Simulated assay, not measured.
Amino acid sequence: MSDNKLFVVSTSTMASVSTSIMGADMSMIPARYVLVAMMLNALSSLIIATIMAPVKKEEDEEFNIKDIPQAD
């Protein structure tokens, strides 16, 4: 995985992994607003991360799910 793709994935993950804060917010305001805000946060972080570190398609970067080792 290229550095740019790793950055985009990491940024998106960190932006959407705030479950404890989301639970605290749901006790203060209605849950539907918190859930919409979380989705918008994840989407906007993906957009900003892609702008900061654009991902270029490489020909040899194809993943075959059958080649990935599975844990027993």
Rank of each mutant, 00 (worst) to 15 (best):
M1A: 09
S2G: 06
S2Q: 06
S2P: 11
D3P: 11
N4Y: 04
N4G: 00
K5C: 04
K5Y: 09
V8H: 06
V8D: 00
S10C: 08
M14W: 13
S16Y: 06
S18N: 07
S20R: 15
G23I: 12
D25V: 13
D25T: 07
M26Q: 09
S27D: 05
M28A: 02
M28F: 06
P30M: 06
A31G: 02
A31K: 13
R32Q: 14
V34K: 00
L35P: 01
V36W: 14
A37R: 10
M38C: 03
M39W: 13
L40Y: 04
L40P: 01
N41C: 02
A42P: 00
L43Q: 10
S44G: 01
S44W: 15
S45W: 07
S45C: 09
L46M: 13
L46V: 14
I47W: 09
I48V: 14
I48R: 06
I48C: 01
T50D: 11
P54R: 05
V55F: 03
V55E: 09
K56M: 15
K57H: 08
K57R: 15
E58T: 07
E58M: 05
D60W: 14
E62F: 15
F63W: 12
N64E: 06
N64L: 06
I65H: 04
K66L: 13
I68W: 11
I68Q: 11
A71L: 11
A71C: 05
D72N: 09
